[in-house]
Design a protein around this nucleic acid. Structure first.
Lengths: 339, 339
DNA sequence: TTGTATGCGTTATCAG
DNA sequence: CTGATAACGCATACAA
């Protein structure tokens, strides 16, 4: 009955051309930046396109361009505050430069990432950003050799193809150690997770190293994934003993929140009077009054901006950057006693 | 020097065919499910493809199929716990059925959503899921007429083209009212936001209506976007007067957390003894010990499952569903006095 | 400025 | 089971 319904298909440039009484090329040119069309023709084409509901097929276009404008974003646990924020920052910026993000949600295991990277190739993504997970080097090679730009966030294995964007995890961890020492804490603990991601490991080890240099021992605990629950559990474990730590460096804010809650509600300790806590990431919840967590802020916006720059710059310039390294700056709130 | 590097381009089926000594068709069939190829040929093709690093070009394939396998996910504020969880649930499931999600991050305003919907058409997405925002009806028509499946989450405007997936917001709000009444609260408040999304409005109005029927007045406050900060601010406003409310229904957990913190830390009130709080969504933080928020759980997994079913089912079956409506179930924690 | 012709990588159709 | 050929929708070199 309804004519529009009968169509049930995408409109092609051909159809627009016929309605407008011009050639296919004229239609193409009308929608191609920097092509020369007379105002009159453009006008006719535009109105024909509007009435027909025509939209350029980016996919067909990319057959010629070798770049679909799609950027693959590969990550795990994207419902996590930090990852979600990164995703938000990236997708926003991609759209601003006329690209679009395709999210590939890996469960973190090797197979899953491999499958994801394959998708990236299937869709002829011009670039791939790996937010987390450990893609096999061989596949990364394939991506790079296919002309893709591959960007790894927070991974320390320095392959030569992909660009790396990292954080000075060790430096921040050392700073955390100093902050706790200045607060007068002696018995120190590190709360980590079993995830074993390079950045998390670096933070834990950086803290341990700093402590060792100062002649102090550190208790390291990891009870599960990088989550609130794991932090809570770690708190239970660490605080139940007789010689309980006076401070904890949690490699993630999520862990820190869990740890704080265990300390306060399971053991009745007050923060920071009886125990100091430092987190990492500066997720939104760290600023919530209930936590008021002293932590290290990841410069997500700067990182995202940098990634956009990597995507934009001409292929050859890859000499300069090598591996960009950002600083995580301490955010003082109330979970550590001031000096 | 390195040969692989020299290529710098995607490998085509043609090249694979030549190396394997077969025709393009044979290559195509090898990678098409349910095509008939001899084991020997398949073997040859596979190994040739591997050494060359060949990957099927989904884009070219979609030129023929009229469906790229891409599903557009349009949403705003995807860094928010609820949206992030929905995104996670959807992308996971999409991959399981061999599709992939393309995220379009709108700032929420009409123009931005319109642009997004256009992208969806540009990429010949087979379906579009709108997580939030108010797409203009005309564009939705275009999507539907192009053969796209359009799915609107939590929007109450019942257009005939798109499928709607909604929540029984009003029912839940009424239930919230009863819970607070049974707890003995008389002076009630609603904390909402200025976002004005249909579902948020429905919750606030549902609560008000229930109260009105019971002959009670309700103070409604909205101070800003749907965020922790707005909830905190609303708390400041509501609790500073002389006749302060005994209970607050917050249309979102984020608002509820902010409100609770204002109540406890700005006014020294204890929850639930001096003030009861109910939230909505059951975001992860609602379960954190510091909040222990009584709230309504959105059945995100069920919703996501349902959406997958909508995507899978044959075009014609659209008679049955009309608009699926899910129930939000109360999750009792500690922010409301038990009966 | 405009139209014509060609090719991008793939799959469907058809003949063998 | 296999290979040749014609689409698919678009951009561009070229001729007008």
């Amino acid at each position: 009955m309804r004519e529009a319904r009968a169509a049930r298909s995408f409109v092609s440039a051909q159809q627009v051309a016929e309605l407008a009484g011009v050639s296919r090329s004229a239609v193409s040119r009308t929608f191609t930046d920097g092509a020369s069309v007379s105002a009159a023709t453009r006008q006719k084409v535009r109105s024909a396109a509007d009435t027909l509901g025509y939209h350029v097929n980016h996919l067909a276009r990319s057959l010629i361009n070798e770049d679909s404008g799609i950027v693959c974003l590969i990550g795990a646990e994207i419902n996590t505050p930090y990852q979600a924020r990164m995703l938000d920052a990236l997708t926003r910026r991609l759209q601003a430069i006329n690209r679009v993000g395709m999210v590939i949600n890996t469960s973190g295991d090797r197979d899953s990432v491999e499958l994801a990277l394959r998708q990236t190739l299937n869709y002829r993504a011009g670039a791939t950003v790996v937010l987390s997970g450990s893609p096999p080097a061989s596949l990364i090679d394939t991506c790079v050799n296919s002309g893709q730009r591959v960007i790894l966030i927070n991974r320390d294995d320095h392959l030569d193809g992909p660009k790396n964007v990292t954080l000075d995890n060790v430096g921040a961890a050392r700073e955390a150690f100093l902050m706790l020492r200045r607060a007068g804490c002696e018995r120190l603990a590190v709360v980590s997770s079993l995830a074993g991601t390079p950045s998390l490991v670096a933070r834990a080890q950086g803290f341990q190293a700093a402590a060792a240099e100062a002649g102090l021992q550190v208790r390291v605990t990891a009870t599960g994934p990088t989550s609130y629950a794991s932090g809570f559990e770690a708190g239970r474990l660490l605080l139940s003993g007789s010689e309980r730590p006076q401070a904890a460096f949690c490699v993630t804010d999520l862990l820190a929140c869990g740890f704080m809650d265990a300390a306060r509600f399971e053991f009745g300790l007050s923060v920071p009077q009886e125990i100091c806590v430092i987190g990492f990431d500066d997720i939104e919840q760290a600023g919530w009054v209930s936590y008021n967590l002293t932590t290290f802020r990841q410069p997500i916006d700067q990182i995202a901006d940098h990634i956009m720059r990597l995507l934009a710059e001409p292929e050859e310039n890859d000499v300069e950057g090598e591996a960009a390294c950002f600083q995580a700056v301490p955010v003082w709130r109330r979970s550590v006693r001031p000096k």
